[in-house]
Amino acid sequence: MNGSLLRRKAVNHLLTGLCALMVLVALLPLVSVLWLVIKNGAAGLSWTFFTALPRPVGEEGGGVGNAVVGTLYIVAIACAFGLPLGIGAGVYLAESRNGLFARGIRFTAELLAGVPSIVIGIVAYGVVVVPMKRFSALAGGVALALLMIPTLARATEDLVRLVPGSLREASLALGVPQWKTSLRVVLRTAMGGIVTAVLLSIARVAGETAPLLFTALNNQYWNLRPDQPTSTLTVQIFNYAISPYEDWHAKAWSAALVLLLVVGVLNLLARQMTRTRLKGAR
């Protein structure tokens, strides 16, 4: 018996050690990406880099101010379409469970979630750019929204289903109609998790390049008109990175760092805003 206890302890230590090793291995690429971006990008960072317009090759200074604003703008457009549709579809899927229609939607969402983002970009090109006859922030926003909706819907569905049925019953027993119970009690209870899902999808689409290349295109100037081509950090990074110029390469690194910062700040802000203010919550 003593021998088997020793053996079990040894196995326990071995596996714990293995798990720790795996965590380190998993973190390694993450940390090295961060390190590389900071190492190469930090030098080019300055206040003007955040606020100024891009300058032509060879000119000192200049920045990606319009791309920062453009990224936020296009992500905002994507959220305006994507959040209500994605979350709404998720709530519908969770509430209607296994109806034929719901199963169809769920299947479609799963398929859509696996579609490469460049294909989504082509769809947005066909649906928005071609009829409008111009590249635009709107087209970019639509493309990103299409990327958000399926993953957000599935995440919302799972989170809403995690809400105990007893809360739904409690609300219904108070004489609250079903739709209001879904939105004001069930969805509200799941909100913490949904906010995280929204943040993840925002972070994901903010980092997309392919669907923006032929929807929002790019712009060397400030733009806040939805029907005009708009600069984004990702496309700007892409353009800088594929250029043959050394100083543009440096700018690509800096812009990548800016993108990381923007996504990070968005994360922090949203967390702060939605953090539960109730005391004593466990």
Binding site: P164, S166, L167, E169, A170, S171, L172, A173, L174, G175, V176, P177, V185, R188, T189, M191, G192, T276, L278, A281
Partner: peptide
């Protein structure tokens, strides 16, 4: 049924307060 449930309230087996509300 919604109006009925306002007249006939219910308390459940396990306490089920709304966790997201004060």
């Amino acid at each position: 049924a919604v109006a009925l449930r306002r007249r006939v309230g219910m308390v459940f087996q396990r306490p089920n307060p709304f966790p997201s509300m004060s």
